[in-house]
């Protein structure tokens, strides 16, 4: 039982960055932009979080800095797509390479290290509950592991369906993604609405990055995001942009991550397990396409 609770706790924590990025990506996609560059904003967020946390001694400022940097990168990225008509896929792949290059450059030139950045006095995300809560049966370990960003991520998941349905921006964002010409015809600026979606995705990816570096390890590494931006993409693609469904898929991916070592000892190769999210997306797309085709023929 404690084993299960421990796996659950690890699952929750490992899910958070994927979930945050996926929330951002799904809002972005509801607005009509497929964001391939979640990874870039995530790694930038992870980096700035460590730097700010070390410099100010405040995890909260660090989190804000991550969100701000992610949002700023997102805004520039959005402009290349909505105003300069760049292909969103190529621009996204390019941004991933560019940001990774910039960070590597900074690391070795400014901090004189390659790959890993350790700074003194990094303040990690605090735990919400005191240590003693882990004695609570069943969910104790989970509660003990909870940090503010994890809580925020799940609150966001809970609020998102409401916000998308009931706020002016939510409605207009969905309309801009579904039928931009309609948005234009009722006198709104669909490009600005889409820019908002990309900035939102940037902010959430930045937060995801902050969680990666500040949740427990307290250092930055170039390989820290390890493709989680793409896993997030896989999650909302598979769940077809539905917030709660996306969260559940993220949880499943987090579980795969958390139980990797145990699966390995059980004889399941972790590398193959790691391909599961991507295979699921392809399978999901095939089923959807097959369904449409059948409907058309009927």
């Amino acid at each position: 039982m404690t084993l299960a609770a421990q796996i659950l706790a690890t699952t929750i924590i490992l899910t958070t960055p994927i979930l945050l990025a996926a929330i951002g990506g799904l809002v972005n996609r509801q607005g009509g932009i497929v964001n391939i560059a979640l990874e870039a904003k995530m790694i930038a967020g992870a980096f700035i979080a460590i730097v700010v946390s070390s410099a100010t001694g405040s995890w909260l400022l660090a989190v804000f800095a991550s969100a701000a940097l992610g949002g700023a990168i997102g805004y520039v990225f959005s402009l290349t797509i909505t105003r300069a008509n760049a292909n969103m896929i190529i621009a996204g792949l390019g941004l991933n390479i560019l940001v990774a290059g910039l960070l590597g450059f900074l690391l070795s030139r400014v901090y004189g290290t390659s790959g890993t950045l350790r700074l003194p006095d990094v303040h990690l995300l605090p735990k919400i509950f005191p240590e003693s809560v882990s004695d609570v049966p069943l969910i104790g370990p989970v509660l003990a592991a909870l940090d503010p960003l994890t809580l925020f991520a799940w609150l966001a998941v809970a609020a998102l369906p409401f916000l998308l349905a009931n706020t002016r921006l939510g409605l207009r964002l969905r309309a801009a993604g579904n039928a931009p010409q309609v948005v234009r015809s009722v006198g709104l600026r669909e490009k600005s609405i889409q820019d908002f979606g990309t900035v939102f995705a940037g902010i959430f990816s930045g937060l995801a990055g902050a969680h990666l570096s500040l949740a427990s390890i307290g250092l930055f590494n170039e390989g820290l995001s390890a493709g989680r931006g793409f896993i997030a993409l896989a999650a909302f693609y598979f769940a077809r942009n539905r917030p709660v469904g996306t969260a559940l898929v993220c949880l499943f991916f987090g579980f795969l991550d958390a139980s990797q070592i145990r699966l390995q000892t059980a004889g399941l190769p972790p590398k193959l397990i790691g391909t599961l999210p991507y295979l699921m997306v392809i399978l999901g797309l095939c089923l959807a396409a097959w369904n449409t085709k059948r409907k058309l023929q009927a």
Binding site: L171, R174, A175, N178, A179, Q181, V182, V183, S185, V186
Partner: peptide
């Protein structure tokens, strides 16, 4: 000029 995935009210 109606967005197909939105409801009629929306």
């Amino acid at each position: 000029m109606l967005a197909p995935e939105l409801t009629l009210l929306e």
